[in-house]
């Protein structure tokens, strides 16, 4: 079975570009409010020394990872 279905991939990307071009709904917190909230949570977690339950990758793993495409988290 083929790894890719070019037409479906093309269609997928076409819809994605249309989606990415649309304005997003307003977030519940502004950037400044979110950063303040995150810093408070980080301080609380660092203070309690609580281990995070979720799985988190090691930063060093990602430092060497390829960064391809322009549709990533920063776009």
């Amino acid at each position: 079975m083929a790894d890719e279905e070019p037409e479906t991939v093309h269609e997928l990307r076409r819809h994605y570009h249309a989606f990415a071009a649309r304005a997003l709904p307003d977030p519940p917190l502004s950037d400044e409010e979110l950063v303040a909230e995150l810093r408070a949570r980080a301080k609380s977690e660092a203070g309690s020394g609580r281990e995070r339950a979720r799985e988190e990758p090691q930063p060093t793993q990602q430092a060497n990872g390829p960064e391809t495409g322009q549709s990533g988290v920063g776009s």
Partner: peptide
């Protein structure tokens, strides 16, 4: 983003921070 902030001092390059953020998003 909280996970990223907790490791922010170890994410020395923008590419590392973006890669870590992406990975964390999907794994979380």
């Amino acid at each position: 983003l909280l996970a990223v902030l907790l490791r922010w001092d170890r994410l020395l390059w923008p590419e590392a921070a973006r890669g870590y953020t992406r990975t964390t998003l999907y794994r979380t």
